[in-house]
């Protein structure tokens, strides 16, 4: 019996691409990977409408869309618009900054990853 064409974890078209292209793809993954490792930590996401939301990072995707739990506006007096919201999804494209917890930043690891990806691109 012939083996199936698609086996195991291969579910995405990109996984079939050649090495150079998959390197290009991994190049775009630096911050995606970084934020995935940061899941569970408290971050402050500052948006391009000046709203700043603090919460626990729950998940992130390839577009750097972000899900937070236990959210609150940093300045609740001026931004009471989300008072009844405890969990939220933030579109990556409206993020200006993310304030990172110092214990969640390994600078040596970041330097290595950045150099590795700069070479690959």
């Amino acid at each position: 019996m012939a083996p199936p064409l698609f086996v195991g974890d291969v579910t995405l078209p990109l996984q079939f691409l050649d090495r150079k292209q998959s390197r290009t793809q991994s190049h775009a993954m630096l911050f995606f990977s970084y934020f995935k490792d940061l899941v569970g930590r408290e971050v402050t996401v500052e948006l391009k409408n000046d709203l700043a939301i603090r919460g626990t990072l729950i998940s992130v995707d390839q577009y750097l869309n972000i899900k937070l739990e236990n959210t609150r506006a940093v300045d609740q007096d001026n931004f009471p618009h989300m008072l009844s919201v405890r969990n939220c999804f933030i579109r990556g494209s409206v993020v200006r900054y993310v304030q990172l917890p110092p214990e969640g930043v390994d600078v040596d690891l970041l330097h290595d990853a950045t150099r590795r990806e700069a070479r690959g691109g």
């Binding site: 775009a28 911050f31 970084y34 330097h111 950045t114 990806e117």
Partner: peptide, 13 residues
Amino acid sequence: LHAYDQHLNMILG
């Protein structure tokens, strides 16, 4: 500068 990518996303300290 601690990290960057081709979009100029960055991590600064």
